[in-house]
Amino acid sequence: MKKLLILVIVLLAGAVGQRAQAQVSTDYDKSVNFSQYKTYAWCTPDIEVGRNPVYNSPLITSNIEATLSTELQKRGLTMNPEQPDLLVGFHTYTEKRTQTVVNPPAPLYYPFGFRAGWRYFPYGYGNWPYQWNTGFQQRQYTEGTLVVDFVDAKSKQLVWRGLIEGAIDNPTRIEREITRGVQKIMKEYPIKAI
């Protein structure tokens, strides 16, 4: 019974302490034949990331466009601003979020991470480790959202949307996270990469 309780608490602590992985979701018009689209042009991006220069950077915008261009080329689309079949736009958004995390464990007195306390011994009462060191704290982090929209250039109707949300706290990894995020979104596009 003790081992089961220990396992449940350890799993719960791990689940609460871990930040969720980036989540991708897509939606599209099921009546559209996506193989008809051969060319695209850019719409003006919508960037809402506040004044923080870490996130409000033209380099991030150009990185998103470059990665999207590569992914579109893999699917047989070429850029043609004069006669596009698709209008491609994207939106970025950041906001501060709060996460509950498990406090680091106290020094281990015994293999199970107990703290000292009073408990009955076979030979009387005494100091014996038995109380769990469970504590939680709030942590602030920045969550970023990238939304990619494909609009039919003739009808002006949205035909496909992909989005990814995730934590973007480490400025040194933003470029890599954006590239991976765009690639994850485009994996869900109805036409697969060639």
Results as ranks from 00 to 15, higher is better:
residue 15 A to S: 10
residue 15 A to M: 12
residue 15 A to C: 13
residue 16 V to N: 10
residue 16 V to P: 07
residue 16 V to G: 02
residue 17 G to L: 04
residue 17 G to Q: 00
residue 18 Q to E: 06
residue 18 Q to G: 11
residue 18 Q to P: 06
residue 18 Q to C: 14
residue 18 Q to F: 09
residue 19 R to Y: 12
residue 19 R to M: 11
residue 20 A to I: 02
residue 20 A to D: 12
residue 20 A to R: 12
residue 21 Q to E: 13
residue 21 Q to A: 15
residue 21 Q to P: 06
residue 22 A to L: 02
residue 22 A to K: 07
residue 23 Q to E: 11
residue 23 Q to D: 09
residue 24 V to K: 07
residue 24 V to E: 06
residue 24 V to M: 06
residue 24 V to C: 02
residue 25 S to P: 04
residue 25 S to I: 03
residue 26 T to I: 09
residue 26 T to D: 05
residue 27 D to F: 09
residue 27 D to C: 03
residue 28 Y to T: 01
residue 28 Y to D: 03
residue 28 Y to K: 12
residue 29 D to F: 03
residue 29 D to K: 10
residue 29 D to V: 09
residue 30 K to N: 11
residue 30 K to V: 09
residue 32 V to H: 07
residue 32 V to G: 04
residue 32 V to K: 13
residue 34 F to T: 01
residue 34 F to W: 00
residue 35 S to Y: 05
residue 36 Q to S: 13
residue 36 Q to W: 00
residue 38 K to W: 04
residue 38 K to D: 06
residue 38 K to P: 01
residue 38 K to F: 07
residue 38 K to T: 13
residue 38 K to G: 08
residue 38 K to Q: 13
residue 38 K to S: 11
residue 39 T to E: 02
residue 39 T to H: 12
residue 39 T to I: 01
residue 39 T to A: 04
residue 40 Y to I: 01
residue 40 Y to N: 06
residue 41 A to P: 03
residue 41 A to Y: 00
residue 41 A to G: 10
residue 41 A to I: 07
residue 41 A to K: 06
residue 42 W to S: 05
residue 42 W to Y: 05
residue 43 C to Q: 15
residue 43 C to E: 15
residue 44 T to L: 03
residue 44 T to W: 00
residue 44 T to I: 13
residue 44 T to E: 15
residue 45 P to F: 08
residue 45 P to N: 04
residue 45 P to T: 05
residue 46 D to K: 10
residue 47 I to R: 03
residue 47 I to F: 07
residue 48 E to F: 08
residue 48 E to Q: 15
residue 48 E to V: 14
residue 48 E to R: 14
residue 48 E to H: 14
residue 50 G to W: 11
residue 50 G to D: 08
residue 51 R to G: 14
residue 51 R to P: 09
residue 51 R to K: 14
residue 52 N to S: 03
residue 52 N to F: 03
residue 52 N to E: 10
residue 52 N to H: 02
residue 52 N to I: 05
residue 53 P to K: 05
residue 53 P to V: 10
residue 53 P to T: 05
residue 54 V to Q: 13
residue 54 V to D: 07
residue 54 V to H: 02
residue 55 Y to D: 05
residue 56 N to T: 00
residue 56 N to D: 13
residue 56 N to F: 11
residue 56 N to G: 09
residue 57 S to C: 09
residue 57 S to A: 00
residue 58 P to T: 02
residue 58 P to V: 09
residue 59 L to S: 13
residue 59 L to C: 00
residue 59 L to H: 12
residue 60 I to D: 12
residue 60 I to K: 10
residue 62 S to P: 05
residue 62 S to F: 11
residue 62 S to W: 09
residue 62 S to T: 12
residue 62 S to R: 14
residue 63 N to R: 15
residue 63 N to P: 00
residue 64 I to F: 05
residue 64 I to E: 02
residue 64 I to Q: 10
